[in-house]
Amino acid sequence: MRQTLRRQRWWLARIIALPFQLIVFAAVSFLLVHNIPGDPVAVLTGGQADAANRAAIEKQLGLDGSLPTQLMRYLGHTLTFDLGHSYITGRSVASEFGDRLPATIELTLMGVFLSAVLALGLSYLAVTRPRNPVSYLVRGYARIAGGLPDFAVGVAAVFVFYATLHWAPAPLGRLSSDVDDVPKVTGLPFLDTILTGRFDASWSMAGHLALPVATLVISQAGVLVKMLIGGLEEAVDAAPTRFRIASGASPAMVRLSLVRRALPPAVTTCGTLFGYALGGAVIVEAIFGFAGIGSYLSDSVSSGDIPAMQGFLVIVAAVSLLVFLLVDLANMSLDPRRRPGARTD
């Protein structure tokens, strides 16, 4: 048992650390937002509040008491997934995000996942078959990596495939107007269409998702392709690859070994990309008329809605920590030397 525990420590330790990291982040974000100039009571009452009124509102908003008291109260609430109530709508921040965030996350994940799969395939081709015409295109694409902003690609895609060619449906939401709404199961819209067996909606949604996801992939995959081409090229001539080939491992094993060694930097980039893709998804949602967190966020910032902003920071931090936990675990599985305590000399 102890032996097993010691061998599994590398990932157990990371998972156990996660809530603590989140608490530290929540505290820091609380203090940051707290220091933003502005008086929420004045915003709510239009500057008309008298002293008694003000105290009551402050108590209601959780703004009474000393800073440490407020912080502890806030952390206590956060741990129970209570992110407070919006000053403006009065609705629970947690449920507001619960309604909007999954759709955005789904779009982001689709973009990142497809980017990763395509990047791996294309860069493998570009490296192993350098004289193939497709390889030249892939390398050309990798060279302009990061030079294709998502908003430009999105607008161009709408212009070409909807306005000009009429191949794509109108950029007005996830479903065509003649398709009924799908009941919510997980909150991830596309997954829900499958879970509820509404394949007509799946089909309609796939059509509506094609351009947004392509926009994300085109604007994000270049960085991955560039990185993977570099990594694979190095791995092809590396001694372990040559030794695998020469000693007589099967070609499939050689490829697996090659990719496994070239992958870790790209996995890390995927994690970073997730952050960009999340930002990109907000923009893409605006272009294609999707419901998501984009509009909710800009509203809450302009109206000084502190619980909403804080809630957003905490949720984004939680998502990022989770993503980087997955990145680290993936890398530590790919390359055991990255596990803490691995003896490398």
Binding site: T128, R242, F243, I245, A246, G248, P251, V254
Partner: peptide, 17 residues
């Protein structure tokens, strides 16, 4: 055509380190 070398059956190799 392939950048990834193929094995020559019957020929093995070891390296420096």
């Amino acid at each position: 055509r392939s950048r990834l070398p193929r094995r020559t059956p019957g020929l093995s190799m070891i390296f420096q380190d």
